[in-house]
Design a protein around this nucleic acid. Sequence first.
DNA 1: ACTATAGCATTGCAATGCTATGTATTCTGG
DNA 2: CCAGAATACATAGCATTGCAATGCTATAGT
Lengths: 212, 212
Amino acid sequence: MARTKDPAVRTLLIERAAHMLRVREPITLRSLVAGTGVSTMAVYTYFGGMDGLWKALRQEGFTRLAARFETVPMSADPVRDLAALVAAYLRNALDHPDLYRVMFDASFELEDLKAADATLEYLVQALRRARDTGRLRAEVDPLELAIQSWAIGHGLVSLVANGPLPSHTLDHGVSMLTALLIGEGDQADRCRTSVERGWQQSLPPGEEAGAE
Amino acid sequence: MARTKDPAVRTLLIERAAHMLRVREPITLRSLVAGTGVSTMAVYTYFGGMDGLWKALRQEGFTRLAARFETVPMSADPVRDLAALVAAYLRNALDHPDLYRVMFDASFELEDLKAADATLEYLVQALRRARDTGRLRAEVDPLELAIQSWAIGHGLVSLVANGPLPSHTLDHGVSMLTALLIGEGDQADRCRTSVERGWQQSLPPGEEAGAE
DNA sequence: ACTATAGCATTGCAATGCTATGTATTCTGG
DNA sequence: CCAGAATACATAGCATTGCAATGCTATAGT
């Protein structure tokens, strides 16, 4: 018995916010709605305030990360696939450094947690395959190892994207992942070539460069 | 031929800001100077504005981290020492999570870089000893390996302190460091016991708990 | 001692996020 | 099909933010 919310307004605001983040314009209540035809109150009806908008932006970041993971082709080599996923993770963070910062800014809430878990699941699946195909010891926990891989990727890229280290630091990911997986039972030479292949595959730029 | 700046005011403001950060009070220009007897202009004369204050806070964070590293006793086992340093790094971040976030927030500037390098040097020294005493291969670059250790520590703790993961995730640091160092030439069993010893040493809480 | 220079307090301003009030719109119940 | 109610929406205003401008004051150098 009342007006219904127009979902288009919500997505419009989120995408405009993501765009402003990308071009490094400060996102304020008024600057966000300027030119959109909607008024400042829209932010409150759809997000409950600026905090809600940031939370929605965080989820959008994870959604885009999941979309990027989706484009990583899986192969018969799960170790290669894991490396490709981590490399894709790094690329995504470098392509959207400000959005990436928002993703890990401030406190996580329940919705954000689920979004993060969904992306983590990609890594878990690859590691489960690696274990079940005998590349890793039978007693490894894919989730624990996925978290460790995540920590490696996040540590590297957050020190590079918004931190003090130069971008070539990311190359360390190869040896770090290799060492991690060898420690979990993979054969040394085989592991190194798998990781290097997966890494190379996701790194060359060009794919959806102008996305935003 | 003019009034001289009182250094006490500067340190007073920094310590008050660090305290407000610790007790999670929002730091604003006015709330910072409230009750100190100094006026808002002091922030401009000593820091050039709020941005300068945040930069000073960032350096203060690295200074405290260096002080913590200083308390980590070095032993004859450089691998153990490295693990102890990384564990101390994690503890420091958990003890001052908001200050830690400030340290890696936004853009680094020249001064911050030097402060970060100074703390990184602790890791470099330990790794250089590890290499020179034959624990690691002769051709390893201590700086590169220090950066990788830093990435592991930073990745773990930033996903825990201000992120979605529970604190027991930090325990993964042991196996991650172990795998990293074994990959660089250390003996497997020896490495594991060294890392575990160093880890345990710095982890028990209590030391300077009520600081600041 | 005198003066120039820098610290310092006060005031005011634009911009921020948010709320209160009123209007308009659209879904629902009969 | 048409009232009525609940909700979206627009506008205006409020407290607070960081900061600049303006004088005033205190101190260091000659």
